[in-house]
Design a protein around this nucleic acid. Sequence first.
DNA 1: AAAACATTTGGCTTTTTGGCCAAACAACAA
DNA 2: TTGTTGTTTGGCCAAAAAGCCAAATGTTTT
Lengths: 104, 104
Amino acid sequence: MQTKKNNSIFNKPYYEARAKVFKALGHPTRLLFADHLARGEKCVCELQVLVHADMSTVSKHLTVMREAGIVSMEKRGSNVYYALKMECLAGFLACLDQVLGTQA
Amino acid sequence: MQTKKNNSIFNKPYYEARAKVFKALGHPTRLLFADHLARGEKCVCELQVLVHADMSTVSKHLTVMREAGIVSMEKRGSNVYYALKMECLAGFLACLDQVLGTQA
DNA sequence: AAAACATTTGGCTTTTTGGCCAAACAACAA
DNA sequence: TTGTTGTTTGGCCAAAAAGCCAAATGTTTT
């Protein structure tokens, strides 16, 4: 059981933390990664082939996502595997599609 | 009835449109606005008093949100009223709170 | 018409972000 | 050990975003 959370207008750090999550998803490459990671963990190299970007660029995108708190990383062997820590993304994306669809 | 949408990995413009929505919510001020607008339309002046920003800054934030497709604007008298066009935000925010909460 | 109010637009500066390269690390293979 | 592969880090530069001021626009009031 939890005590009531203070997510009010005046809780600035909380708004910042949430905005950070949106910002982390606010780039086509990172949103693509999130979408893929929603179907299971992937190593950096697997994500890299999805976009035509430098490995270092991919790594930095993943760092942004990790610092926002939406992915976890685990090193296994010589690979690093990333996983999405957010089950509700798919639902929200579906809703987004409706919003964006109706204005086309 | 609609034909099947092509939201695949390879549909770049679609990812960009969705990322634009996340980016529009990826700023504390704009997320605060969205949160308030979720409870009903507000005029620019009402939003302005919530943050300690210049009126022109507020107006530009609202433009970003409008161009992402998540708010509508309506001019009535000398005021402009903005409204959120996304009912699913509250649910997603609640989920976010869980994700962010568990790592505190 | 002039003044007052609400909002947007243009211009400008500072800060942040994105992307590439090269270098550093870490794990594994030869 | 040396080499090879996978990943991160640091540095740099170009592009985009944020915020302020001043000016323009549109509406209502006097």
